[in-house]
Amino acid sequence: MIRPFKYSKPRFLREALEALEKENARALAGGSDLLVELREGKSQAEHIVDVKAIPELSCFSIGKDGIIIGGQLTLNELAESKELGQTCPILGDAARTVATPQVRNRATLVGNLCTASPAADLAPPLFVLGAAVVVASKEGEQRIPIQQFFQGPKKNCLQPGQLVLRVEIPPRSTGRGVFMKKSRVRGHDLATINVAGWTNPQAGILRICIGACGPTPVLLTSSDELYQRAVCRDELLDGLATLAQDQIAPIDDLRASAAYRRSLVTVFLGRMVRILFPEEGGWPHV
């Protein structure tokens, strides 16, 4: 059972920020994680601040300034957005793999990040896209690179009185991405591992992020150099596998052993690279 608490639904950001300064205050967006925490006694929140009426969190735009996704945007709204699907399909691809259709009608992208699960499905795409989390407090707004936002398992960098307004993805002229997830079942499940890759061959950029293989999602370092150096796709693949195995730190848990996760990472990196660089012939992809 959920213990009693006080609920407010401020219409102004300032009000919400004030409310969130209280001890044991929590922001409520989709509620799909928060209500479970409350029910299971994992959260002792006494003040629940519903942020669904704050105009600053409703923004959703795709343009030359990049992509902006407000804190109220649900995963299904992202998955159903045709424009987003054309501009940056990996976000919708990732959103569609989260939980169930019912949950996706409530759960938000920002909420998915705030829970800061190492297996958060929206994290790897946002890591490879170089997204930033825009956080508001009474002192003003702050842009936090997504890597800094994730601090550890279920731990984000937010302080009391802070609220995530939106996620910003910088503009990209060209480029393509892939998202992949492996779960125990085909039905709804947490990720055993998830991976996202993004490349801009013209610029020599290749970014890979792997989820559920460490305390936070792992954005591989030096993948650009590897990509620029590789003389063929197989070399890139081997190099990436080695890089990933060095940088990830999976654990044994109920969902999988660390060894299985390591193996899946190599397998899915391979599959991803083959999709990102479909033709063996035209290497290097510039």
Binding site: A241, T242, S257
Partner: peptide
């Protein structure tokens, strides 16, 4: 050969 020389549990 195993991919990535994985140690088996």
């Amino acid at each position: 050969t195993l991919p990535g020389a994985i140690k088996l549990p």
